[in-house]
Amino acid sequence: MNALEIKNLTKNYGGFKLDNLNLTLPGGCIMGLIGENGAGKSTTIKLILDMISRDSGTIKILGRDNRENIQLKQDIGVVLDDVGIPECLNSKQVGKIMSHTFTNWNDKIFADYLKQLSIPPNKPFKEFSRGMKMKLGITVALSHNPKLLILDEATSGLDPVIRDEVLDIFSDFTRDENHSVLISSHIVSDLEKICDYIAFLHKGKLLLCQEKDILLEQYGILHCTESQLSELEPSAVKGKKISPYGVQALVLRNRIPAQMGVSPVSIEDLFIFMVKESV
């Protein structure tokens, strides 16, 4: 079963439009939502969670319409960019509140994550660092046996060691084929590390949604001269950067002559090339 199915989703704010978005996240997978500030990542997440109303389109979570029943949110763990936990509460109080909120809340899992991520149980949230706040948000999201995790910039503010630890937790989470993750982040390297699927959003439009391994197989970076580039089939070139030292082009590997050396592309470079090309 698909964890998430979005069809023809549109939301118009006047100055910004999320335009006809189509996404499918299969069960047991992690999808990374990549986009610049204002691309529509948070709007997409808010629409999925029915925090804002859509103009058109459909959203299905775990096979059910996202507006069908509020109890659907029992199966979703969410971490927002601002976390949203009241500043005066400590971790213990947050645990008690959530135990009265989620029917599947597991105190042991919560306590284990607090320990694993070194989160103090009695310190007020306002005294936490940004990274610590995120860690508590992640702990809450994981402690009620959710089937789908929705993470909006959940790794930002974490130091590299903790970020790595948290990414491992997300990867472990999807070992169960009923568990899935939708994660948006500016730190593309994080997404490249853990995601099975990558979706690029740019100015409210979906540029691409594809399996990460296929993307890395399909695309490559070609270093050449301008005249060499002009000899290539135009549809093979998806983006280019011209400098006095030569040309760097994003190309489809299977349309490039074998004798031309094509180097691997990172997801970050792929995104930057595509965004610049679409401007």
Partner: peptide, 18 residues
């Protein structure tokens, strides 16, 4: 007022409460 300042207003929208 504190809910708005702490962004709980948004967070509560992600929880299983109508």
């Amino acid at each position: 007022s504190y809910d708005e300042r702490d962004k709980w207003t948004q967070y509560s929208g992600t929880l299983p409460y109508s």
